[in-house]
């Protein structure tokens, strides 16, 4: 029943719509506000989705791995590395463990020290990469065993810096969604203002319509249709401009880090299409509510 009412209200009726004068600042205001808000909503959505992807990636990529660092004098390093590998081999929850080669360690340090680092001359600890498996790694138990058998071993399960990063990414995602809600609220407020101004400016027309037997539904419908379609068209333009802006952002790359990944991927590109519909829905609800209130006031 409500769906049918909404369809009836939104159905274009050029003759009925003509009762509201077609021009006025409220028309421009509605178009501009819905366009600008849709533009911002596209970026908020892109931010939220990118932050979500980042949080998921960090959580999944880093959660399944740990690093063991052997801080031992050079003459003991190989023996302690071997001992640590033995311990790891017997540890439940370790799918695989391997010592990084000198070349791999040099590559890790290359961004800071350059490619020609003489690794043998520096007290660089040996790194062992641990890949977790089922039933999961008991880090506390492993630390105790390593402390007893490999005194120079330090286990880093990445949780110390992974959790704040994942939390930050989740917070960014939340901020993105909150921004979208605020944008929706601001749109509703602005369109309510515009609708109220339009209703007040057309009070005489409303009076004439009432005198000739118009129901509130007919009068409100003329205003609701006008504002809903304007908001929809404004939001379509704003969304297209927003998507163009997102398209012009640099491609996601490891070198660029998080900022270059601020965009849509795969099926995410469909989501911005919802923005004009939501904009229209917000305008519909705001104008309907404003019209009902104003018509009650004017009676």
């Amino acid at each position: 029943m409500i769906g049918q009412d909404i369809r009836t209200l939104l159905r274009r009726d050029t003759r009925a719509d003509r009762v509201v004068p077609p021009t006025g600042f409220t028309a421009h205001l509605t178009l501009f506000v819905s366009g600008a808000m849709a533009f911002l909503a596209v970026f908020a959505l892109a931010l939220s989705l990118a932050a979500g992807r980042l949080a998921d990636r960090w959580a999944s990529e880093l959660a399944g791995a740990a690093t063991l660092r052997i801080n031992a004098p050079v003459e003991q390093r190989a023996a302690q590395t071997q001992a640590a590998l033995e311990v790891l081999k017997q540890t439940p929850g370790v799918a695989s463990a391997r010592a990084l080669s000198a070349e791999e360690q040099a590559a890790l340090l290359a961004p800071w020290f350059g490619p020609d680092l003489p690794l043998d001359t520096l007290p660089v600890p040996q790194l062992i990469e641990i890949i977790e498996g089922e039933p999961g790694l008991d880090t506390m138990g492993l630390r105790l065993r390593l402390a007893a058998e490999v005194p120079g071993a330090v286990l880093d399960d990445h949780s110390r810096w992974r959790e704040p990063l994942v939390d930050a990414a989740h917070s960014l995602r939340r901020l993105g969604w909150i921004s979208i809600l605020l944008i929706g609220g601001a749109t509703a407020a602005m369109i309510t203002l515009a609708a109220n101004a339009s209703l007040a400016a057309n009070a005489q027309i409303i009076e004439v319509l009432r005198q000739v037997g118009a129901r509130d539904r007919f009068i409100a419908g003329a205003f609701v249709r006008r504002f809903t379609w304007r908001a929809f068209f404004g939001a379509v333009v704003g969304t297209i401009l927003g998507l163009t802006g997102v398209l012009l952002l640099p491609e996601a790359s490891d070198a660029g880090g998080f900022l270059t990944g601020l965009g849509f991927q795969g099926a995410d590109w469909v989501l911005p299409a919802v923005i004009p519909v939501l904009g229209a829905a917000v305008a519909f609800a705001a104008t309907w509510s404003a019209a009902r209130r104003k018509l009650k006031e004017l009676s």
Binding site: A16, R18, V19, I205, L209, V212
Partner: peptide, 18 residues
């Protein structure tokens, strides 16, 4: 009172429309 942006015929037909 009439709606000044509508023609005479449209104004007269207003009760039919509403």
């Amino acid at each position: 009172r009439f709606l000044d942006h509508m023609t005479l015929a449209e104004n007269v037909a207003l009760p039919l429309m509403v």
